[in-house]
Amino acid sequence: MSDGPLTLTINGKPQQFERVPDAERLLDTLRWRAGLKGTKEGCRTGGCGACTVLVNGEPTLSCLVLSHEVSGENVTTIEGVAAEKVGRIVIRAFAEAGAVQCGYCTPGFVVALAGQLQGDGTPPSVASLLDGLEGNLCRCTGYRAIQKAVVAAREALK
């Protein structure tokens, strides 16, 4: 690690950033250097899930990762997720289920769910998908509509 250049593959495109401080978090690199503000800033302590991105396909809290730690890795943000089939299906399912109110937590939920639904084969069980969303907080919907969206997105991908 160094207070130096950083290379990340963001949504499939390699990107170079100059003079990135050692302590900079992935969340801030994505939002303020790459200009991808769909990844939301919530608690910055790993407690809310609003900043969830995929690192090499794995749902990851970008507020808890230093950018240099993931140098050279593949990072997919909500903007990237939304451009792909699974993401589009998940987004549609959230909208149709009424699972979006203030919408601030939604990109984090979408990424966390899409990350679990990617890949071939049978999707994980609903219970397992919900377990994967335990780290995502929503204060508006009471989660019932999100649960419906999870079921609907899973059905659509089966």
Binding site: K37, G38, I78, A95, V100, C102
Partner: peptide, 20 residues
């Protein structure tokens, strides 16, 4: 009926205070 703001929010396309 789908709310007009639902998909743009879910895609992370709308600007909140923290994004200013």
């Amino acid at each position: 009926m789908i709310r007009s703001d639902a998909e743009p929010k879910a895609r992370g396309a709308l600007e909140y205070g923290t994004d200013l």
